[in-house]
Structures are given as structure tokens and as C-alpha cells.
């Protein structure tokens, strides 16, 4: 395999990882934009979503129909979970200093991880994630010596579909416009009669549903599930959100893709052991050079 081919192959792999990061980063960035909170439990919601999909696929066996159903169920469960966490853990802290909510988010993260470890059907050990049997392995692409497998194609299709849907919701629905209004100026949104609590709730629901979808995609790429699986992709998606400019939706998409590609290329051409160091090195460089990220605006805070 020539260098160009290998590079293209790694690029394809990078894109598919990047799309997953982008889906997770969207949740981070939307929640930050509206609630001004870094929801560190976001990665663990991904884990819950992956297990949701896991149980559906174990129960029904993997067919195209059950695969789609697993997304629907996992996204619903996580949307409800996200709203529940916001209502019970973050809402009471809304007028408290931001650090309180941040620490609470870390607490929620540990709570979800460890509850998953102790409850019976999940347990501490990794489990193999069910994949499509051979007869459903229909989508594969080979060109120029580059191989794109079915999982990667699914990742691409699902991510693009969800991003278009999100884009539609944010730009064209009343709730989406209210989300942008609340993220720009919460006080003014109150004065317009916007039910800010409902908007925040809805944002957590959407972000968590995207995390659930990312969880299933992530689990089917590896293919395994375990209680701590959300931690690393969660942190990396956070880096992606900061890279793109936290609070910016296009920023999260671009940041996720850049991060996925950077990680994969580092693994392929530099060193697989150094890949994570390079990824987090990117975070440090952004924080030094352009803390507002690619699409971020420097907003001066008004007291």
C-alpha cells in the first residue's frame, strides 16, 4: 500500500471518528451555550445510550430494523435522562456560582459510571457489542485502494442526518429560535415571555439524544461496551467543542472532525501511544493561542 493510499485510508478512519466526536461535541456546546455549564456527565450519557442500544440489539438480534429501533430507544432514554439530570442536579444551582454546577457535573459523571458498574445487567466488565451478521453486511466501498466499511458508512449517514435535523430545529422551529435567543441573552428572553426553563430542558434533551446516537456508533465501531467507555470520547469531544469555539454549533462539527482526523493521523503516522498526548496538546495550544476557538466570539461579560 502506497503512502497516498494509506494516508487516504487514515483520513477516512479519521472522518468516521471525527463525526462521532462532532455528535458528542454538539451536546457539550449547546448545553454550554444555553446553560453556561460544562456538563461533564455528557460522556456518561453516551455510555447509557450505548447500553440502551446494546440491550435492544441483544433482545431483538441485529437487523436493519432493530438497529434503527435501537437508536430511537436509546435517544429517547437519554433525552429523558438528560432532562432529569438537569431538573434535579443543575437547575437548583442555576443562581449559584458556576463552579458549583461544574463540580456537580463531575459528581453526576462519577455517579453514572459507578451505578453502571454495580447494577446487574451492566456490571464492571466490557461486553461485546452486537454487530450486523454477514448477510446484512451490504454497504462497503472500495475505491483507489481505500476501504470504507459498513460501520463507517453508517456513522457517516447517521451523523449527517442528525446534523441536518439539528440544523433544521435550531434555525427553523420556534423552539430553536428561542434556544438561540436564550443563549444570546437569557434576561431579555425572560422579558419576551420565553419559558426559559423549558428551553433549557429541551436543550439537554437534544444534546443527550445526540450523545446516545454517538454512543451506539462508537460502540459498534469498537465493538464493545463498558461503564467507563464515555469518559475518553467525552473529554475529547469537549476538546473538540473548545477547538471549534464553545457555544458554536458549526464549531462543534468542525472541531469534532479536526480532532478525529488529528487523532487518527497521529496514530497512523506518528505513534499510537502519543496520539492522546497530541490531542490534548491541541487543547493547550488553543487555550494559549485562541481561547475562543475557531468560530467563537470574544464576548465581554457584562455584570
Amino acid at each position: 500500500m502506497g503512502f497516498v493510499q494509506e494516508f487516504l485510508q487514515q483520513l477516512v478512519n479519521g472522518f468516521s471518528l471525527g463525526f462521532i466526536y462532532a455528535l458528542i461535541a454538539l451536546g457539550y456546546t449547546m448545553v454550554y451555550g444555553i446553560a453556561k455549564l460544562i456538563n461533564f456527565a455528557h460522556g456518561d450519557i453516551l455510555m447509557v445510550g450505548a447500553y440502551g442500544g446494546f440491550f435492544v440489539l441483544i433482545a431483538l438480534l441485529v437487523t436493519p430494523g432493530s438497529f434503527i429501533l435501537s437508536f430511537v430507544i436509546a435517544m429517547l432514554i437519554c433525552a429523558l435522562l438528560g432532562m432529569f439530570i438537569e431538573r434535579t442536579c443543575y437547575k437548583p444551582l442555576r443562581s449559584a456560582p458556576r463552579i458549583n454546577a461544574l463540580i456537580t457535573a463531575i459528581g453526576v459523571s462519577f455517579f453514572l459510571e459507578n451505578v453502571a458498574r454495580v447494577i446487574k445487567p451492566i456490571g464492571p466488565n466490557p461486553k461485546e457489542f452486537p454487530v450486523f451478521p454477514q448477510k446484512f453486511n451490504l454497504l462497503e466501498l472500495d475505491f483507489l485502494g481505500v476501504h470504507i466499511n459498513q460501520t463507517q458508512i453508517i456513522i457517516f449517514l447517521v451523523s449527517v442526518f442528525l446534523m441536518f435535523t439539528l440544523n433544521y430545529i435550531v434555525n427553523n422551529t420556534k423552539m430553536g429560535k428561542a434556544m438561540r435567543a436564550v443563549s444570546f441573552d437569557r434576561g431579555a428572553a425572560y422579558l419576551m415571555g420565553i419559558n426559559v426553563n423549558r428551553v433549557i430542558s429541551f436543550t439537554f434533551a437534544i444534546g443527550s439524544a445526540l450523545a446516545a446516537a454517538a454512543g451506539i456508533l462508537f460502540a459498534s465501531a469498537y465493538p464493545q461496551v463498558e461503564p467507563l467507555m464515555g469518559f475518553m470520547p467525552g473529554i475529547k469531544a469537549f476538546v473538540a467543542a473548545v477547538l471549534g469555539g464553545i457555544g458554536s454549533i458549526p464549531g462543534a462539527m468542525v472541531g469534532g472532525l479536526i480532532l478525529g482526523i488529528a487523532e487518527t493521523l497521529s496514530k497512523g503516522f506518528i505513534s499510537s501511544k502519543l496520539a492522546d498526548a497530541i490531542v490534548f496538546g491541541i487543547l493547550i495550544i488553543i487555550l494559549v493561542v485562541k481561547p475562543s476557538g475557531i468560530f467563537g466570539q470574544n464576548v465581554s461579560e457584562k455584570v
Binding site: 438561540r180 422579558l191 419576551m192 420565553i194
Partner: peptide, 29 residues
């Protein structure tokens, strides 16, 4: 939001329009 629903609304100090939304979207809000 209930206060606005009851028919009492405010034009806030410093205008505080939603600068990231279009004119039409501001009116929709």
C-alpha cells in the same frame, strides 16, 4: 413568562435585541 402572558411586557434598557437573530426572528420571539 407568565407576567408577559398576563399582558405586561417590557422594552428593556439598552434595547437587548437578539443580535444573533434576524429582524423577523426577533419579532417572532
Amino acid at each position: 413568562n407568565r407576567i408577559v402572558e398576563s399582558g405586561l411586557a417590557q422594552v428593556p434598557e439598552g434595547r437587548r435585541i437578539f443580535a444573533n437573530l434576524t429582524v423577523m426572528e426577533n419579532l417572532e420571539m
